[in-house]
């Protein structure tokens, strides 16, 4: 791909700069990640702490960034490398925040779905008697993107800062909501932080371990069966495979296994979307088509899988559901 080297180089720098400048990988200065919790009255400290790492809240912004990158791509051959780099740098520093905020506000669908997912997770946890605290405005980003782009030295200060914030809030157990953050906290942070002393639990692990009553009523229009898309990180990195099946069973939901499932699940294409949206779309289409051949309603456990498979909903006639959305529907009856 033409200009691939400068694109990757630029992406590495923009993410680093954004984090240093604003503490946010997208460079958004406004506190956007707490709105979902309005009205939930979550305490700001406690031994069990919910850590969202902004992953679901970033979705409307990620959709817009990906769209903007895709639109700017045809301009690349017209610009010199240094010219493109300079423009990207200035645009990132000056305009990305207000522009993204305006555009992301229009992404009502994904915004409401990511909010429903987080609210559903909190409702599900309440259903098993877990009432977590939440850091609200003080919740930091985990640095997962830096790790995935091999900027390991940059992860170290971020990890230290996150760990201190979690400990300062009195946390002993940290409940995560997505596989990527779970992997960071469970596998990467302990390699970086000496005497790491936090119990990291994905919410589905807690729901699978603790008993909760099966719901008596199924919400109207709610599907009876779902084809399950396992997340690569959840299965092959973390080895969490049965938890979602156990929880689905307790919710009286029939789970259908697609051709490639569990440890052999196929990727949604999300990890390369930041640089190669065309390739990412081809990969997500192959997976979405495979899922569509098995069932209409697709169940996912990861916000990255959600936005990548969602792209093909209209084309393939599928509806992608995050597990949090399902919990929200079931527990809000």
């Amino acid at each position: 791909m033409q200009s691939s080297k400068v694109l990757i180089s630029q992406a590495l720098n923009i993410i680093q700069d954004n984090l240093e400048r604003t503490g946010d990988p997208l460079g958004v200065k406004t506190v956007y990640w707490t709105r979902w919790s309005d009205g939930l009255s979550l305490p700001d400290r406690g031994p069990v702490l919910l850590y969202t790492a902004r992953m679901y809240q970033m979705l409307p912004f990620i959709v817009e960034v990906a769209g903007m990158t895709e639109k700017a791509r045809p301009l690349l051959p017209l610009l010199s490398v240094k010219g493109f780099a300079r423009i990207a740098e200035v645009v990132s520093a000056l305009t990305i925040d207000p522009l993204l905020r305006v555009k992301a506000r229009r992404g009502q669908n994904i915004r409401s779905r990511s909010k429903a997912a987080l609210c559903g997770i909190v409702s599900g946890l309440a259903g098993v008697g877990v009432h977590p605290a939440y850091l609200h405005d003080n919740e930091p980003y985990s640095g997962v993107l830096l790790w995935e782009l091999e900027l390991e030295e940059k992860v170290m200060p971020v990890a230290g800062s996150v760990y201190n914030k979690l400990k300062s809030a009195g946390a002993e157990t940290v409940v995560t909501v997505d596989p990527h953050t779970t992997f960071m906290l469970r596998e990467v942070y302990p390699r970086i932080i000496s005497n790491f002393n936090l119990d990291i639990r994905h919410y589905l692990e807690l729901l699978a371990e603790l008993q909760f009553p099966s719901p008596e009523y199924r919400p109207s229009g709610f599907p009876e069966k779902f084809v399950l898309h396992d997340s690569c990180v959840m299965t092959r990195n973390l080895g969490i495979i049965e938890a979602v099946r156990t929880v689905a069973n307790r919710l009286n939901i029939e789970v259908i296994e697609p051709e490639n499932t569990g440890m052999d699940t196929a990727c949604c294409g999300g990890p390369v979307e930041y640089a190669y949206p065309d390739l990412s779309r081809s990969i997500s289409y192959i997976r979405a088509k495979e899922l569509a051949e098995t069932g209409r309603d697709v169940l996912v456990l990861c916000p990255v899988c959600l936005i990548n498979l969602m792209k093909h909903e209209n084309e393939l006639g599928i509806r992608v559901w995050d597990m949090g959305e399902i919990l929200n529907s079931v527990f809000s009856v």
């Binding site: 791909m1 990195n237 294409g269 990890p271 640089a275 190669y276 390739l279």
Partner: peptide
């Protein structure tokens, strides 16, 4: 030489670990 094509090949890896299975 670390050129555009090779950057694309390396950075397009999803690190999904299916190959490791």
């Amino acid at each position: 030489d670390f050129d555009d094509s090779l950057t694309y090949c390396l950075y397009s890896c999803l690190k999904c670990r299916r190959c490791e299975n």
